[in-house]
């Protein structure tokens, strides 16, 4: 699996209220949520972002609430991957569970700039910065989580186990 797109860069501690403000949480419809993706961090984000684009952020991305609406909004906005220096733990967990690709890489998150064009190979963990002609290597997921992702998310895994 590969992702390829233009980078939208954000700072540290981007929280779930910025990713999807609570005023929109009276629905759980992914497409409705996607319309407000990143709205309180950058009100024009959804006007500018194109399908396949990539979010790159600083430390503690996704801190705050446990709302799965946050990774759901990003996934439904057709962002192909989030790269950050570090992720807040519930956001990390939720992304794995719903199948939003995320990558933790301090080096990549620091070096990649707004507007860079990058390509990610999820199998090898290699991130190519086409604009800067550079490469970064990301931490791979632990095998336990790779298993969840390979089975298509947590619910698919549970379904398979319940059938046994």
């Amino acid at each position: 699996m590969k992702a390829h797109g233009k980078v939208w860069k954000f700072g540290n501690d981007i929280n779930t209220d910025e990713i999807i403000p609570a005023r929109y949480l009276n629905t759980s419809d992914p497409d409705e949520l996607a319309q407000h993706c990143m709205e309180d961090a950058d009100p024009d984000f959804m006007k500018k972002a194109r399908p396949g684009d990539i979010i790159v952020a600083g430390k503690n991305f996704g801190c705050g609430s446990s709302r799965e609406h946050a990774p759901i909004a990003i996934k439904a906005a057709k962002i192909s991957c989030v790269i950050a220096q570090s992720f807040a733990r519930i956001f990390y967990r939720n992304s794995v569970n719903i199948g939003l690709p995320i990558i933790e890489s301090e080096e990549a998150a620091k070096d990649i700039e707004q507007g860079d064009e990058i390509e990610i190979d999820f199998d090898s963990g290699v991130i190519k910065n086409i604009t800067k002609n550079k490469e970064y290597r990301a931490k791979p997921f632990p095998p336990f989580m790779q298993d969840i992702i390979a089975k298509g998310g947590l619910m698919a895994k549970v379904k398979a186990e319940l059938k046994k």
Partner: peptide, 12 residues
Amino acid sequence: VGSTDMAAAMAT
């Protein structure tokens, strides 16, 4: 945790 975790735990 998230909603998916909750769903899985309600079942298992």
